[in-house]
């Protein structure tokens, strides 16, 4: 068995075992007429603190706090286990208080964002690796400008040398806006090669009207259109990877605050409302 597969099995087994042990404990406490909610609540709060501390670890790279990869593994499996503990804590019933409902919603949103992020971090890198060129996210706007200038200058040079305007007009009508502007939100949310395919097909069709000089330039335009599409693809997927993390981390703070408030109130009214 490969290292990652073995690691997955071991970590999953430990998580399931932890949840099972807590379930048995809850059953024992409940059968002894105790209130397990305090125990599971504190455990859940400790787990949330442990999960949030990963963010702190990332900010302290100079300290020997263990490898980030180990922290991430712990983060993932503690999060999985926390779902089980959460269900035991709410006793498989949706809470009825306002604060508790909001807290449950934020918890669910954080877990869902984490799951979505996990899926994306495991699938998007492979998609990006298949694109020929590796680009840094911060470099993308600059590279876009370079591609736009190259396309524009090449078309202008062709018009000047050949004295024919067909390619120039085609560029103005179909390609100028493609090179000049970033892709819209629709593409960012759901990147596809539709526009590239359509442009390539259009350009192929238009070559019948081009002179020999223009055809040579059109060959380069094909390549530039493809490179621009690759760049946009990188932009969309890298943006997605960065944005989900932002959302996931942003949800952590209200979750922790609400959990603390809930714990405080739970203890404050431990004896019941009089």
């Amino acid at each position: 068995m490969h290292h990652f597969a073995r690691r997955r099995w071991i970590n999953a087994t430990i998580s399931v075992a932890l949840v099972a042990l807590v379930a048995l404990w809850v059953r024992f406490v409940e059968s002894s007429l105790g209130r397990s909610a305090y125990h599971t609540g504190w455990l859940l709060l400790a787990m949330l603190v442990a999960l949030a501390s990963y963010s702190l670890r990332k900010r302290l790279p100079v300290l020997p706090l263990g490898r980030s990869a180990i922290w991430l593994q712990a983060h993932l499996y503690i999060a999985f286990a926390s779902v089980g503990i959460f269900l035991l804590h709410i006793q498989f019933r949706w809470p009825n208080g306002i604060l508790e409902s909001i807290l449950a919603c934020v918890f669910a949103a954080t877990i869902i964002s984490g799951l979505v992020g996990l899926y994306w971090t495991r699938t998007i890198p492979k998609k990006l690796a298949k694109v020929g060129e590796e680009v840094l996210y911060e470099e993308i706007p600059r590279l876009r400008v370079i591609l736009r200038d190259r396309a524009q200058n090449m078309v202008l040079a062709t018009v000047r040398t050949s004295g024919e305007a067909t390619l120039g007009e085609y560029y103005e009508q179909r390609l100028r806006s493609y090179f000049a502007r970033p892709r819209g939100w629709r593409y960012r949310l759901r990147p596809s090669s539709d526009v590239r395919k359509a442009l390539m097909a259009d350009l192929t069709e238009a070559t019948r009207y081009f002179s020999d000089t223009e055809r040579k330039s059109a060959e380069q335009l094909f390549s530039l259109v493809r490179r621009r599409d690759d760049l946009d693809y990188h932009d969309a997927l890298q943006w997605r990877l960065k944005t989900w993390l932002f959302v996931h981390v942003a949800l952590t703070y209200p979750l922790l605050l609400l959990a603390l408030a809930h714990g405080w109130l739970a203890h404050l009214f431990a004896g019941g409302l009089s």
Binding site: F4, K58, P61, V62, L63, P64, L65, G66, R67, S68, A69, W71, L72, T121, P125
Partner: peptide, 16 residues
Amino acid sequence: DLPTGPACLAACPHDA
């Protein structure tokens, strides 16, 4: 000189 060893290696969350 760092107690962590190479910081880049220690900081990678995905074993990449």
